[in-house]
Design a protein around this nucleic acid. Structure first.
Length: 575
RNA sequence: GCGCCUCUAGCUCAACGGCAGAGCAGUGGACUCUUAAUCCAUUGGUUCAGGGUUCGAAUCCCUGGGGGCGCACCA
């Protein structure tokens, strides 16, 4: 069992993403959202509804009576609102409670609350109090009410802040009748600020003995099931806020993601890299082979592309003498969506002057190993069910050798295309006539060898044809000094010795342009400004790109990119 | 884009051609040491939408919508 499987004890294992996509919270949300705007829930062709006058519509009438502004703030109204059930009556009941508070002169959405401790700080400081201890230590804490246990003249509530949870101990005898009644009116999901003293119960549960409770924000909408949380992946991603409230696994995943990115920044800064920010809006979409998103600037009346890579601007900075630069930024590719692909994703790219491919391979290993240590406290993770120690050296193998071995026949981009096409046909690999030997060899590699790369592996020596920005291999003119890092059959990183000869770069660009003109939309164009930059002289340089989402996936142990992106791209919800 | 799967109360799930149900949440009540508190009572449904088959449809068929998975594209 690896540490990353650690879960808070009281909860059962959260379901992994793919099982049972059940329930349809989306609809519920859609309903209430719509009714706020006076639109009838579940849009059916029913033209009499959308005129805003709901009085004659039986199904919408009853719960509407409870809505704040229309409700006389007394208990009867709250009672009426609570009659019936379902989301709308629940929202009405909670809203009516808001109105009552306002009427009583209480601001249900105060501006601030000064706390003395986070909940984990309380636990750290008083965690070893013996059972049945009362202290005079006054604290002010804040959090969301997650659970409540009501036993007559005592109420126990579990509140949670970002750091952790703690129990509130509310005694009628301590707070008085009125305040006790107010506490009983609190709902699961409400944010509260609490003044009290630290104590432990007879069974030893560390608690805050409440003296005063202030409502910090009312939850008008009920929380998902307190035990099962949300199961429907659609709802989890669309309503990430709700997912984060009820799903500890999701919170943990994004903590890991944060730790990984923070770790990268720290490591690179320590090694003399400067963090920069380059344009997202490009006039040419270069640096990778991918379809771009197109957008438009009105005043300039100019079509622009969202960047598909960071590469070309960063290398301009190497020309400018910045020597070591990196950027962690969002990239956009107008391609398919899958468990491994989101249209926008986060890439880290770095460039190091005076180095080559071997330097950036070393940095790749270092970055990921240190990130694992920082995020998980260990370098041992589980990949495809097997424990793998990332700290062990990662094997390196040439792409052509891996492909040849998997095929059982030597392949190399220098071979006649007919020969390579015949092998492709034999292996049922589909090819296109404009592909040269390099592209064919890459396709053969992907079809045969790639799926066996589970443990971290550097694949090196990609054909020149598919690597227009990488420097030619010093021992083989058909290949480049390039590597890709594969882990769990996924490409995680890509780096090379950067091509810095402006004349050769122009030839490569022209080949890209020709391929694009021939109909391959993913291919590149001639970037004249970049060529001009190279003409000023770019020192020998090693460059690297790492897909941060995929590193986060690897270290968080999740198998869908949507699990590491807070708000993944989805079709718009129908309200 | 193609194939397969899926959608039932606010949430988690039953019912699989014959009266739409449970747990949680909510509501009313009991309880001064609970831990998903417990106990008693109880509200809540256009079964994703539309059409069809049938005496009868949540269930079978068709169309549409959302989502998931696989393939393709890519990182």
């Amino acid at each position: 069992m690896t540490p990353r499987r650690r879960r808070p004890p009281p909860r059962p294992p959260r379901r992994r993403t793919r099982h049972r996509p059940r329930g349809s919270a989306t609809r519920g949300a859609a309903c209430s959202g719509a009714s706020q705007r006076g639109i009838r829930c579940r849009a059916r062709p029913q033209p009499t509804i959308d005129d805003g006058s709901h009085a004659g519509t039986p199904r919408t009438t009853d719960y509407r009576q409870g809505v704040v502004s229309e409700t006389p703030p007394d208990h009867d109204a709250a009672g009426d609102a609570g009659a019936g059930s379902g989301l709308e009556s629940e929202r009405a009941r909670r809203s009516a409670r808001l109105a009552e508070l306002r009427d009583a002169g209480v601001e249900p959405y105060p501006y601030r609350f000064d706390r003395t401790h986070t909940l984990t700080e309380v636990r750290e400081r008083w965690g070893d109090l013996e059972a049945g201890t009362e202290t005079d230590e006054a604290v002010a804490v804040a959090g969301r009410i997650m659970l409540r246990r009501d036993s007559g003249k005592l109420v126990f509530a579990t509140v949670r802040d970002r750091s952790g949870e703690i129990q509130l101990f509310v005694s009628k005898a301590v707070v008085g009748d009125d305040a006790f009644a107010d506490v009983k009116e609190l709902d699961l999901g409400d944010w509260v600020g609490v003044h009290g003293t630290v104590m432990t119960t007879r069974k030893g549960e560390l608690s805050v003995k409440v003296e005063r409770v202030a409502l910090l924000a009312k939850a008008v909408r009920p929380l998902p099931d307190k035990w099962h949380g949300l199961a429907d992946t659609d709802t989890r991603f669309r309503q990430r806020y709700a997912d984060l409230i009820v799903n500890a696994e999701a919170r943990r995943t994004f903590e890991i993601r944060h730790a990984v990115i923070a770790s990268f920044r720290r490591t690179l800064t320590e090694r003399g890299f400067i963090e920069v920010e380059t344009p997202v809006l490009h006039t040419e979409a270069g640096g990778a082979l991918a379809r771009p998103f197109v957008t438009h600037h009105n005043t300039l009346d100019l079509d622009l592309y969202l960047r598909i890579a960071l590469e070309l601007h960063l290398k301009r900075l190497i020309v400018g003498g910045m020597e070591r630069v990196f950027e962690i930024g969002r990239i956009f590719r107008n391609e398919g969506i899958s468990t491994r692909h989101n249209p926008e994703f986060t890439m880290m790219e770095l460039y190091q002057a005076f180095g080559d491919m071997t330097d950036v391979m070393a940095i790749t290993e270092e970055l990921i190993v240190i990130a694992a240590r920082d995020a998980l406290g260990t370098t041992v993770i589980e990949i495809a069910g097997e424990p793998v120690d990332l700290a062990e050296p990662w094997p390196r193998a040439r792409l052509v050798d891996l492909a040849s071995e998997a095929i059982g026949d030597e392949v190399h981009p220098s071979q006649p295309v007919e020969h390579l096409r015949a092998i492709a046909d034999r292996l049922d690999v589909r090819w296109e006539p404009q592909w040269g030997g390099g592209k064919l060899v890459e396709e053969l590699f992907e079809a045969t060898a790639e799926s066996s790369l589970v443990r971290p592996t550097f694949v090196t020596g990609h054909p020149t044809e598919i690597s227009p920005l990488a420097r030619t291999d010093r021992t083989d003119p058909w290949l480049t000094e390039r590597f890709e890092l594969f882990v769990d059959r996924r490409e995680l990183a890509n780096g090379y010795s950067e091509l810095n000869d402006p004349a050769e770069q122009r030839e490569r660009f022209e080949a890209e342009q020709a391929a694009k003109d021939a109909g391959d939309a993913t291919r590149g164009t001639v970037d004249e400004d970049y060529l001009r930059a190279l003409e000023y002289g770019m020192p020998p340089t090693g460059g690297l790109g790492i897909g941060m989402d995929r590193v986060a996936m690897l270290l968080a142990g999740v198998d869908t990119i949507k699990e590491v992106i807070l708000f993944p791209t989805l079709r718009p919800e129908v309200f």
